[in-house]
Design a binder for these strands. Structure first.
Length: 429
RNA sequence: GUGGGCGUAGCUCAAUAGGCAGAGCGCCUGUCUGUGGAACAGGUGGUUGAGGGUUCAAGUCCCUUCGCCCACCCCA
């Protein structure tokens, strides 16, 4: 066996059929982003590690990011997420930008983790953020964008739901249970893990944090209270906005949604895909009003979310929602090369056909015609052009329609017009 | 970081109890000297991931190692 140098662990090779899927997701994200009037942007793929240390623990960044030292001894990270870059970019031009600022991006990220199903070390994410307003309507807009995306890719409300909560509401409620303000962060983490742990272990974890059994019972009741949102003015307004945006069927209140990230300050949400008994998290987002300050800017409210391409693709594939016809197109016309003497003539003709906007291949050598036609058939060429001694002598060209096998010969001067008509189906053979 | 599964032809896989490494698909050629798909015929295909051990004999058993997959952990 030949030993081919292996790809880097956790990367994917984007063969054309895989690339086509990624492009399709990109197109869907772009279409939805544009329809809400968001502008596309991009940041650098590498950042100084300090940018992330400002927000997440430095240890976390060092362990889960690809980090290297540049020649000046600075630690550089392959970006593990976009939000700090966004915060930096906005902070740099904070007084020049026009608010509300609506930006979106779709690009690669890296995390040094053990690859498994739905997770690689290199992946793509759609990020979209609304910066400036701190209103429930702004939160609702982002959630409506998620819903619009779900619709765009064919996910129905029974396939996917957006679960929403509000951290300020939860803080108020937790304090009412007698939990110390200094402990909120840990209890948020506890809530975040409830679904992932066995009940007994979770309860043990809770008492480790110092919660009394009465508090644990109260907390469980709280996390099961689907009407809790009515205690929050912000959530009430949020759901009115969701209603007006006509995406209610995709959106639900969920008291146990809290998100792992520390930087969320208000509304938080998570997109879940449901398929059979399996529930997968496909995106997450929320309000982060302090992040600009963290990177050295003035305080500026913001809300946004990120969606990874990998789990999204997985879900769409399982549900059979990926269209068959998304492969990137090959040429539609092949100009064959009859013999070495006619190569120039074939090249000239292929160039001429390209000038009309057609996707044209010219066979690169004078092979047997059967081989050239077989090639044309296999890569999905619609029309093969034959330019042999007979044609050249009479100043004609022959077109063969691969699907039917029919062929016609026309005057050389009419070649470009005829083939366009053939491809448009104007000349039924 | 922890646990489990799997590595045989380009691909999908087989190989009885340890006994000549195979099939299908693909690829190439021909039937077909200016015509693809179909059919038929022939051909190309391998250090069984790597290294070591046991044995008369190892794809098969044992040890080591590498790689991939799955789950846990983590999840910005």
């Amino acid at each position: 066996m030949k030993s081919i140098i292996k790809p880097v662990k956790g990367t994917r090779d984007y063969y054309p059929e895989v690339m086509a899927l990624r492009s399709w997701l990109y197109d869907a994200a772009k279409k939805v982003s544009n329809s809400f009037g968001y502008q596309e942007y991009e940041g650098p793929l590498i950042e100084s590690i300090e940018l992330y240390a400002a927000k997440s623990g430095e240890e976390l960044v060092k362990e889960q990011s690809f980090v290297f030292e540049d020649r000046g001894g600075n630690l550089i990270a392959l970006r593990p997420e976009l939000t700090p870059t966004l915060a930096r970019m906005v902070a740099q031009r904070q007084n020049q930008l026009i608010y509300p600022l609506r930006w979106w991006s779709f690009g690669p990220f890296w995390r040094y983790e053990r690859p498994q199903k739905g997770r690689t070390r290199e992946f793509f994410q759609w990020n979209i953020d609304l910066i400036g307003p701190d209103t429930p309507a702004a939160d609702a807009e982002l959630v409506a964008i998620v819903a619009a995306f779900f619709k765009q890719v064919g996910l129905s409300p029974s396939d996917a739901q957006i679960m929403v909560n509000n951290r300020q509401l939860m803080e108020t409620e937790l304090i009412a249970l007698g939990i110390a303000p200094g402990q909120l962060k840990e209890v948020f983490r506890l809530i975040d893990r409830k679904a992932k742990m066995e009940r007994s272990k979770w309860e043990a974890y809770a008492s480790e944090l110092g919660l009394e059994s009465r508090q644990i019972d109260d907390l469980k009741k709280l996390l099961a209270d689907d009407e809790l949102w009515q205690k929050s003015r912000a959530l009430e307004e949020f759901f009115l906005a969701i209603d007006a945006l006509q995406v209610s069927e995709y959106v639900r209140y969920a008291p146990y949604i809290i998100r792992g990230l520390d930087y969320y300050t208000g509304t938080v949400f998570e997109g879940l895909a449901v398929n059979g008994g399996l529930t997968r998290s496909i995106l997450g987002g929320g309000r982060y009003d302090n992040l600009l300050e963290d990177v050295g800017g003035d305080k500026l409210p913001a809300v946004g979310f990120a969606m990874g391409d990998l789990v999204m693709s997985l879900v769409l594939e399982e549900l059979g929602l990926i269209p068959e016809d998304i492969k990137s197109p090959s040429a539609s016309v092949l100009v064959t090369v009859f013999d070495e003497g006619s190569m120039q003539e074939s090249l000239r003709l292929s160039d001429e056909l390209r000038q009309t906007g057609l996707r044209v291949n010219c066979y690169p050598q004078a092979d047997k015609l059967s081989k050239q036609l077989k090639f044309a058939d296999r890569i999905g060429i619609k029309i093969a052009v034959i330019l042999g001694p007979e044609e050249i002598k009479q100043d004609m060209v022959t077109f063969k329609e691969l699907s039917s096998g029919n062929q016609i010969s026309v005057d050389r001067a009419l070649a470009a017009d005829t083939i366009s008509e053939l491809l448009d189906g104007y000349i039924p053979s």
